[in-house]
Design a protein around this nucleic acid. Sequence first.
DNA 1: CTGAAAGCGCTTACAG
DNA 2: CTGAAAGCGCTTACAG
Lengths: 350, 350
Amino acid sequence: MINSSKKISMKDIADELNLSITTVSFVVNGKSEEKSISPATVKKVNDLIEKRGFNPNSAARLLRTGKSKTIGLIVEDIGNYFFANIAKTVGKAAHKNGYSVILSSTENNDATARELINKMKNSSVDGFIITATHGLFKEIAKLKKENVPFVLLDRIMPGIETNHVILDNYSGGVQLTTHLVNNGYSKIGLVSVVSQMSNVIGRENGFLEAMRAAKLKVPAKTILKFPFGESRLDTIAAIKRYLANNPNLEAVFFTTNDLGVLGIEAIQESNLKIPMDIAVVSFDDNDLFRLLNPSITVAAQPIREIGTRAIELLIKLINGEPEMDEMTGVTIKPTIIIRNSSPKKILQRR
Amino acid sequence: MINSSKKISMKDIADELNLSITTVSFVVNGKSEEKSISPATVKKVNDLIEKRGFNPNSAARLLRTGKSKTIGLIVEDIGNYFFANIAKTVGKAAHKNGYSVILSSTENNDATARELINKMKNSSVDGFIITATHGLFKEIAKLKKENVPFVLLDRIMPGIETNHVILDNYSGGVQLTTHLVNNGYSKIGLVSVVSQMSNVIGRENGFLEAMRAAKLKVPAKTILKFPFGESRLDTIAAIKRYLANNPNLEAVFFTTNDLGVLGIEAIQESNLKIPMDIAVVSFDDNDLFRLLNPSITVAAQPIREIGTRAIELLIKLINGEPEMDEMTGVTIKPTIIIRNSSPKKILQRR
DNA sequence: CTGAAAGCGCTTACAG
DNA sequence: CTGAAAGCGCTTACAG
C-alpha cells in the first residue's frame, strides 16, 4: 500500500533543519532550557513540528524509557452502573494527568482476569487498578513482589496486604439491616451472590451480625444465592420461587445493584406490593431505585470518591511517592438513603 | 531500586539455551514449522519460556511491526448505560480476537475528542471505533485520508463517507410519534439535546415529520433543548418549568435515555401522573423504563448488535479485508417497545 | 549551544 | 535446521 502520508519522525525534522536528532528530542521533551538550546533553534523546531504535525512515536519512547503513560483498569463488569461510573471517574482523572487507560471486564472469571493482567503487564502499563476475582491470589502476590504499582478496588484479597480503596461493606450491611429491624421487620431474607470476595462477605456478615444482635433468626431457606453470570430470566424465576417458598417473609435485603433490580422485577411479576407485602433494601443506588414508586432504600456507594481516591493513589505509587513497602488502605463509608420501600411496619398483608 | 525480578527477554532465553534470538523469536511467534525448527529445540524453548514466565515486550514488537493489537474506543460518555454496554460488547469481541481496548469519553467536547484521537494515534492503535462530536470533521477526514481503519458509531459525520454502524434514528422518531398520534394524542412536546449530530437530528426529524404528516402543530414553546453536560438538577428544574408553561401538553417525547430519566423525575416532582396527566415515550431502554409503574414506551437500541457489528467491521478493516476505498454502512432498526406510559388516550386530567 | 552514538527488545531478510 | 546483523524511533550519557 502506498502511504503518501507516511508517519513523520524526529529524524525527518532534524534532517530538514540540519540539526541532530538529539536537539530535536530535547525541544520535544521540553528540555531546551535545561540543555540550553538557543531560542532561535527551539522556535525553528517547534514551527516545523507544528507544520508537519509531528507526534513522537510512543512505542519507541516506551521501549527506551519503560514508561507507557498508560494505566490498566480491570473491573468486574463495565456494563454495570457502578463500574461504568468508576471507569468514567478514573478515565477523567487519568487524562488530566496525561495517562490513557486500557479497560477490561473480568466477568468475575479467574482465567479472564489472569489473562488480562498478563496482557496488560507486557503491554507495559505503568500501573493497575484491579477489581480482583477470587482466584487471583497468585497474580496479586506476584504484582506485589515485582513492585508493580497497583491498587485493589471494591474488594481486597484476603491474606495479602495491598494498597486498596474499598467500601465499608460490613457497616452498610449492618445499617441497612438495623434500619429494617428498627422499623419493626423481623423476618428478613437475604438475596446475594455466591462469592468469597471481601465485598460480598462484608455485606452478608453485616446483615447476619445485625440479625444476631437483634436476636432474630435467619432460616436457611430465607437465604438465596446466585452464581455470577446467572441469566436475567433464570434469576428472576429463582427469586419468584424463593418468594413463593417464603410466604411470611416481611423484608428482603439485596446485596447488589443487579440483584436489587431483578428482585424488584420478580416482586412485580409475583404481584407483590412494596412495602405492603414485602419491604426492600438494596446495596448500591441507581435511577430505578431513586424513581421507582415506592423508591428503594439503599446503601449507596460514593462512586466518584472511590474512583478518585483509587486513581490518585495509583498515580502516587507510579511516581514512587509513598514508600514502596508502605501500604495505603482507604475505606469509604456507604451513604444510607432511607426511602419508601422500608417504612415503619404497620401492617403487612402476607 | 533493586529489582530482583527483572523482566526477562528473548536474549535471556536464547543465552541460557545457547541458541540465537532468531530461533527463540521463531518459536515464540509460532513459526517453528515454517522455519523448520527442530521439535527438540522448540520444546526446550517453550519449556524455558514457561519456567521463566517470559512474555514478549510489546513495545519492541510494536516498534518493529507497527501492529499494536490495540483498538481505540472513543465514546460520548462511558457512564451512560448505552455506551457502557457498547464498551462491554466491544471489549469482549476485541479480546476474543486478541485485541486490547483503550477507552475514553469525549463528554461531547470537540477538544477532548481531538486530543483523544491524536493521543491514541501516536500510541499506535490499530484502529478506532469513534462516537464523533460535531467539530470533528477535520480529524475524521484526516483519518480517512491516512487510511487509518476506523468505524463511526452511533452517528455519522455529514459530508464524509465513512464506515459506520448507526441506528435508524429517523425511523425510531417516526414510529414513537406515530404511536402517540394513533393513540389519540395531539399536543406532543419534544425534549431533546442541542446537537447537530446525525443521531439527534434523525430523532427530531422523525418526530417533526410524523407530526407534520398527522397535520399536528408543534409550537416553539413545546420544544425544549439542553446543551450537553447540563447538570442533573438544572435539567430537572428546566423540565418542570417547561411542564408548567405547557399545561395542555398531552404527551412528551424524550430523545435520549438520560433525558427520559430526568424527565420522569421532573414529572414526579411536578406531581403529575403518567399517563393520566401526561403520556411519555423515550429513546433507549433501561431498567427504570422497564420496571417503573407505569412502564415507559421506548425505541430501544439493539446495543449488542450495534457493538458487535462495529467491532467485526473494524477488525475486517484492520485486516484489510474490504477494499480500502469501499465504505460499509450498517444501519440498525430500533425496537419499539410499547408499554404503559402511552395508552389509548381516554381522558386526561390536564 | 549542539551532535555522534549506544541501546531499549524485538522481527526478518539473508546466509549457510 | 540455525545464526549474525540491520533497523524500528526514540532517549540520554558523554563529548566538544
